[in-house]
Amino acid sequence: MSRLATNPLVQLTLWRVREFTREGEALFWVFAFPILLAFALGLAFKSRGPEVVRIAVEQGSGAVELVEALSSGERIEAVLLEPQEAYSRLRTGRVALVVKPGEPVVLQYDSTRSEGNSARMVIGDALQEAAGRRDVLEIRDVRVTEPGARYIDFLIPGLLGLNIMGTGMWGVGFGIVKSRTHKLLKRFLASPMRKSDFMLAFMLARLAFLGVEVAAVLAFGYFVFGVPVRGSILAIAAIVLLGAMTFSGLGLLTASRSKTIEGISGLLNVVMVPMWICSGVFFAYSHFPDAVQPFIRALPLTALNDALRMVLLDGAPLLATAGFLGVLALWGVGSFGLALGIFRWH
């Protein structure tokens, strides 16, 4: 007890943990937010049969017959509308495509939207079939519903990574800048406190809740959506731990010069938003051009997400993620070292 009571690193870490546990709002954001997000996204992308295609048919000769022919199957929901109304619904996304009857039949849709493209194919086929086309090859559909291959399975590891990044960077960044604006840093500077102890405390304090935070997201995914946890718990723990340390280090670096809460909020967003988008949280980063792939792979959140997916979904051993862990460690050590050098205490 007395050893701990006089150890500066322990006392500084206790300070950070207490600041956090005694702040109700912070607890909400760390624990409830990722679960709410996973729940909302999980519902939105819930596994179900092929989507119903909603289209409009413009009024004109042959339009009524067209609507009847298209509506015979289960996949298409067609409505008959005045041209103006049809276009207005297309613009606002309430229908994916507008059919103008005539010779030739005109299909109007937005090719940059995936609903538009899939509607184009479905309606194209339906029109051809209605006109008498016979398929020469028989095709049978098999839908993937197996856990581990659905969108929610892709999403949960990404959200876990996102949460580790967010709580690490916001928690450390705000804590540092608040201490600076309250002149507490200056007061510490007047004492013989070791600067590295101070910074390590911010990183260590993250460990106190990391386990609960990660378990909450994984348990939610597992019990509500059946998202598998195939790798070893130890491997997951190691990745999560390294990830948390890395993003605390980045939080330190981001906050190392900021003098105001407004300033640090902006900076944190500048650092994090590109990773929200590029690092494969909500969609695979393979969508980006080849030229930028090396840069995306070098981002710490990309490395964390890739490592988590490998272990959680594919059940890969820890060793298989060594490359990703190397990228994370490099970011963590580099940012901690740089932060220590350029840190502003006043």
């Binding site: 009571a5 006089t6 322990v10 006392q11 002149k183």
Partner: peptide
């Protein structure tokens, strides 16, 4: 060997008096 009280320091609001003293004490 020095003790210091600075003009604008705001000590951590959510620590108790005892915890605050223990924190500073640990540096020496």
């Amino acid at each position: 060997r020095l003790g210091s009280q600075l003009q604008e320091t705001k000590l951590p609001e959510k620590l108790t008096v005892e915890e605050t003293i223990r924190l500073f004490r640990s540096f020496y």
